[in-house]
Design a binder for these strands. Structure first.
Lengths: 341, 341
DNA sequence: CTGTTAGCGCGTTCAA
DNA sequence: TTGAACGCGCTAACAG
């Protein structure tokens, strides 16, 4: 049986109240009494009951995060990094992290969020991979529940977020490819229901426009952020009568798939075809050839989101509620730069 | 303000108790009463308070998992898959998942586990990447806390686990390489404090022995399960006066690093040098060349661990408490098999 | 069938 | 400086 305040009280001969206050560090406890109580607590191995404390304080010191898992299980290192950032950020502030996984879109998802919110399971929620009209956000904001998001939405709602300027990221990638002489550049887009698909696509289009290149719809295909879908989409692009010489991918995983597809056809990536990713997951650096990609500081964003969320939970104002982070193109060899040196 | 049982009771004119029972589906409530109560609850948007319920029932319906993060953040897809498995398995049984991250070994880790256990934060814990003398296990078992592990230990303690037969996995890899004609085979080991490092090393040694090959200590180096450490260790091996022609790596990430290192030196992996990994993370299939590796069903193991844990929590007996899963070599191209066909 | 009584363990009045 | 009383929201034993 776990040791409770009552047990300590009985042992030292003080009331539960006094024990509680002594342990909580209240000033109105005699030094001597406090010492005795703390000693006893230590000896008896007292540890406050989390549940009871939560009920009383009306907060759980826990943040929630629901991982949207598209396939039967997830494999995108993006989430692992984000998770680590959120987790570490939470821990730094004395908060725990409650995780659920759930297929995106659909009623099950709604239920998962309701459970967390209405069951007062957590004090706040981090939403990632925002959607254009994100029902999760509208629900959470509607409930007045502390929420922060990685990404924007098209909703006319004010909520705190951090987002990466995907438009600019893709623009950087495009400029680089265009400078290298590419004219037929394809784009393997993330699923279009995701908000960042739109930003990245805009970056693609703007860059074409700016350099007087035509927009060819057959060069834009939609993938599912997985390697295998990148692989399939790349094959599709290479099957075109007039295939692209360069491809910008919606994330690194798809870029890796695209590399595989190219290599299987005997193309040398970086020479015969240029491939650029987005995210800069740890694998990107170690792929073969190393992947040129747009770096976004996922871990740091996760950590910062946690900090923001905790601030909101604790009723402190936020200095910045809408942060746009500038990503940065990391040039490696998959687009041929290295060979030109 | 959230709606409570009391609010409903006031509205329908019954006692809190009756409302509670009606909602919980007890039989001893008049059909008519139940209907009214359920209607009211629905209209008012009632949702049970998780914390209060936990306090009363003395259980949280939550399982805990502490991710051991060696570097400043984690990047091994292994954990993501395991996490997904544990999470899905938990959800299937109506349990939530509480996550913490923590550097392995050291006092901070002990505190994290104490917090979960003594604070009755969770009902049970999953331990992964067991260590030879795993203090986490001895602590948890000592506390009599529901625990399951992915991996064995050298401790003389009885606790439920699932483990992969790493010895046999490496044996399979070695047999394959030896059959292909390799005689100088290196082993990039996981950190030796990990239990599975030992099993895999034994598999390596036994295979050498069985085929009458000498054990050369300079061919065994210890890595840290990351790509960059695989990269460094591989370089070290290739710098030997008499470098190996084949390398078995302690996990896929290190194998990917080893591939990079080899390629940077102009070696063609699969022809000039054979590389085998362990895990079969999704990336393995898509690396270039595709990685020959020992497959272990990480997601399924995670799920099964969750199921076992919940069974223990609910006081049901376990059919199998010590499960050894047989891994299976997946032959791809990094060891040259494909070129021999 | 329904209500009363009685906590779960903790923290916050308020009075002594 | 300390303690008694009270309640967070829910559930369980018991009585009627």
């Amino acid at each position: 049986m776990p040791v409770t305040l009552k047990d300590i009280a009985k042992r030292v001969g003080y009331s539960v109240t006094t024990v509680s206050r002594a342990l909580a560090g209240y000033e109105d406890v005699a030094e001597d009494t406090r010492r005795k109580i703390i000693m006893a607590a230590r000896e008896m191995g007292y540890y406050p009951d989390f549940t009871a404390r939560s009920l009383r304080r009306r907060r759980t010191d826990t943040v929630g995060f629901v991982i949207p898992v598209a396939e039967h299980y997830l494999s995108d290192p993006f989430f692992l990094e984000l998770l680590a950032g959120i987790g570490d950020g939470a821990v730094e502030q004395g908060f725990d992290l409650l995780i659920s996984t759930c297929k995106p879109l659909g009623s099950e998802e709604r239920e998962v969020y309701r459970r967390m919110v209405r069951g007062r399971r957590v004090d706040g929620i981090v939403v990632a991979r925002t959607r254009r009209e994100d029902q999760r956000i509208s629900y959470l904001v509607g409930e007045g529940f502390p929420t922060v998001a990685f990404g924007r939405t098209t909703l006319n709602l004010d909520f705190p977020y951090i987002d990466v300027d995907g438009e600019d990221g893709v623009r950087q990638a495009m400029e680089h490819l265009i400078n290298l002489g590419h004219r037929r550049i394809a784009f393997i887009s993330p699923p279009s229901y995701l908000m960042f698909a739109e930003h990245r696509l805009i970056g693609y289009k703007r860059a074409l426009e700016k350099h007087g290149l035509d927009f060819d719809p057959s060069l834009v295909v939609e993938g599912e952020l997985t390697q295998s879908s990148g692989y399939r989409r790349m094959n599709q692009l290479l099957d075109l009568d007039d295939p692209p010489t360069a491809v910008v991918c919606g994330n690194d995983l798809m870029a890796l798939g695209a590399i595989s597809a190219s290599q299987e056809r005997g193309l040398k990536v970086g020479r015969d075809v240029a491939i650029v990713g987005f995210d800069d997951i740890p694998l990107a650096e170690h792929s073969h050839p190393p992947l040129t990609t747009v770096h976004q500081p996922i871990y740091e964003i996760g950590k910062r989101l946690s900090h923001m969320l905790v601030q909101i939970i604790q009723g402190q104002g936020l200095a910045e509620t809408h942060t746009i982070v500038q990503p940065k193109l990391v040039v490696r060899e998959s687009c041929g730069y290295a060979e030109r040196r």
